[in-house]
Simulated assay, not measured.
Amino acid sequence: MGEIILLRHGETAWSRDGRHTGRTDLPLTDEGRRQAKAAGALLGELPAGTPCWTSPAQRAVETAKLAGLEPDGTDPDLWEWDYGGYEGITSAQIQTQRPGWFLWRDGVVPGGPAGFPGETVEQVGERCDRVIARVLPLAAEGDVVLVAHGHLLRILSARWIEQPPVHGSRLKLDTASVSRLGFEHEIRVITGWNQVG
C-alpha cells in the first residue's frame, strides 16, 4: 500500500494575516513561493507519474508546481471550507460580534459581499469522504498526492482515521507543510504530520 501525501498550499496575504480564506482565489506571496519550493524537498523522490490532484484554487495549483509536482488535474472537492459571511475576516473580528466563537463548534453564517453560502463542518467532511473514496483504490498501487488547504486537509485527515470531521480541530497544519496518511496492519493511520521545510 502507498501513502496519501498531503501538501498544504504556501502562504497567501490572507493566511499570513489570519483571515479566513475559503473560496477567494488569492495568489501566493513571495514567502509562499519560497515555502512551496522548500516543500518539494520534503516530498522525497516520488516516481514519475505519481497521481496528484489539487484544489482548483491558484494557491494550491501554484504550490504543487513549485514543489515539483505534475498535477493530473483539479478536484472541486478539495476546495477549502466555504466560510460564508466570514470570508476574509479574522477570528478576533468575528469574536467582537460573537464572543467565544470557535469555527469548529459554532460554524459560519451565510452570505457576505462575495455571496458565499457557507458550509458546516459536516458538509466539508462529506466532500473529504468523496475524495478518500476516489484515492483509496489508487493508494493500493502506490503513493497519491493531494494539494489543498489547511482546514480541508485537517478534516480529511480526521475522516481518514474514521473520526468525526470536527476532530480536525485538533490537528494543527502550517502553510506548505507535508503530512502523510497510510496504513498499519490494514488500519488507516496518520504516518507523518505537519513537516515544514
Rank of each mutant, 00 (worst) to 15 (best):
M1C: 02
I4N: 04
I4K: 01
I5P: 01
L7C: 03
L7Q: 06
G10A: 02
T12W: 03
D17K: 14
R23K: 06
L26D: 11
P27N: 13
L28F: 06
D30T: 13
R34M: 05
A38C: 00
A38N: 05
A39V: 02
G40L: 01
L43V: 01
L43C: 02
G44Q: 03
E45V: 03
E45C: 01
L46N: 03
P51C: 11
A57Q: 12
Q58Y: 00
R59L: 09
A60I: 07
V61Y: 06
K65L: 15
L66C: 02
L69D: 06
L69C: 03
P71K: 07
D72W: 15
P76L: 14
W79N: 09
D82Y: 08
G84F: 09
E87S: 01
E87K: 00
E87R: 00
G88L: 09
T90C: 06
T90L: 07
S91K: 10
Q95C: 06
Q95G: 05
T96F: 00
R98W: 12
R98H: 10
P99Y: 08
P99I: 02
G100W: 08
W101H: 12
F102R: 14
F102S: 05
W104V: 07
W104C: 01
W104T: 00
D106M: 05
V108R: 03
V109F: 07
F116I: 00
F116R: 04
E119N: 10
E119M: 11
T120E: 10
T120A: 14
T120V: 11
E122W: 06
E122D: 15
Q123E: 15
R127F: 09
R127C: 09
C128I: 07
D129T: 14
V131N: 04
V131P: 02
V135M: 11
L136P: 04
P137L: 07
P137F: 03
L138V: 05
L138W: 07
E141P: 00
L146K: 09
V147G: 12
V147H: 09
L152Q: 15
L153A: 06
L153K: 12
L153C: 08
I155T: 15
S157G: 12
S157H: 07
W160E: 09
I161C: 15
V166R: 13
G168P: 13
S169D: 13
R170S: 14
D174Y: 05
A176M: 10
S177W: 07
R180P: 13
G182M: 12
E184S: 09
H185N: 14
I187A: 14
G192K: 13
W193R: 12
N194A: 04
V196T: 15
V196K: 11
V196D: 00
